[in-house]
Design a protein around this nucleic acid. Structure first.
Lengths: 176, 176
DNA sequence: GATCTTATTGCGATCCGGTCGCAACTGCGC
DNA sequence: GCGCAGTTGCGACCGGATCGCAATAAGATC
């Protein structure tokens, strides 16, 4: 579903919109699903795009909607497998990528560690302590100035949810 | 050399400073070598710390001092092997880690890709375009405000050279 | 310069996060 | 309920990075 590569796509639903959607890079700004607010709503969107509402996709979405923060692929797999034991982690990766292409999910690169996924509606920046590994959520306002300056001076548009900022938390800075 | 783990270290040179140095986490702010300005100077520092001036270490340092930007471990290995073919990439990783502990080298996590290494004296922030992969150098002044705000509001000390900021470059933002 | 201690190296195995190829399965449109 | 094509489980695989180990060699000491 939503494969961005490959040869000529088939137009099951005849929507040109679909191909535009498909050819876009993964990006939190893209996708029609960034406002979706329930599992069923997302699944409706999936089907409208020619995808299918499979059990593993439903459970993954349930886990994502219930999560109170970002989760790694392995954590997602573990949570999904608690309800649907046969779901393979490669299925998690594939679904999470599909959902990201729809704009429902975003991922962030967390320094040395594995990527973290979460619903686009709840996305936020991250600070990670290099010393103790603690993760802090970064309010979006913090980035506004930097993003504006960088845009103006370098023409570069920062995507503040897509990477973690590394450094030292207060305790480690003072104690270490 | 400079192993941070393991049992009681041996005091070849009797310097308590050495153990303090050894027990510190890798960090660009730490280390006595951040001001070192030549291969020989660094090797002198290495020996003062109980390390040895080996050929592979010398060649790696030559490559680092000649580089005009950051390099991945693989690029470093390739460059080193052009002069010393038998140097294994694991030796590159180990040496680069040792040099980082000394404060001579820093590394940055570059989003999805491999880490990038360079001399601490030349370190800078990075912007990476998610679409085309272009890497831009970020002037340190750009981070000053953000770093100050984050420090004041969250107590978190940003290490702006240790991670790349992802987003979209001007061309991709306008064209994509 | 011979000796000895131990830091360092090369090598291959291994780890880890993530991706891929493929045959089997199954939503769901007809 | 048929059949197409989207999806899945599985295992192989990939790239980046780390590790264990026996062999090597800096360099301090004599």
């Amino acid at each position: 579903m939503f494969g961005a590569d490959g040869p000529v796509p088939t137009w099951a639903d005849g929507l040109v919109l679909t191909w535009v959607e498909m050819s876009k890079p993964l990006s939190p700004a893209a996708g029609a699903g960034r406002g979706a607010s329930s599992v069923d709503e997302v699944l409706r969107l999936v089907r409208a795009r020619g995808g299918r509402a499979t059990p593993s996709r439903r459970v993954l979405l349930e886990v994502l909607f219930e999560a109170d923060g970002h989760m790694t692929a392995e954590e997602l797999a573990e949570a999904v497998q608690a309800r649907a034991p046969d779901v393979h982690i490669s299925t998690i990766y594939r679904n999470v990528e599909d959902l990201e292409r729809l704009g429902v999910v975003v991922h962030a690169h967390m320094g040395h560690g594995p990527a973290a996924y979460q619903l686009a509606t709840l996305a936020h920046g991250h600070f990670i302590c290099e010393v103790c590994g603690a993760t802090l959520e970064a309010p979006d306002e913090l980035f506004a100035d930097l993003a504006g300056t960088v845009k103006a001076e370098m023409g570069f548009t920062i995507d503040p949810h897509h990477f973690a900022m590394l450094g030292r938390c207060q305790a480690c800075e003072e104690g270490g």
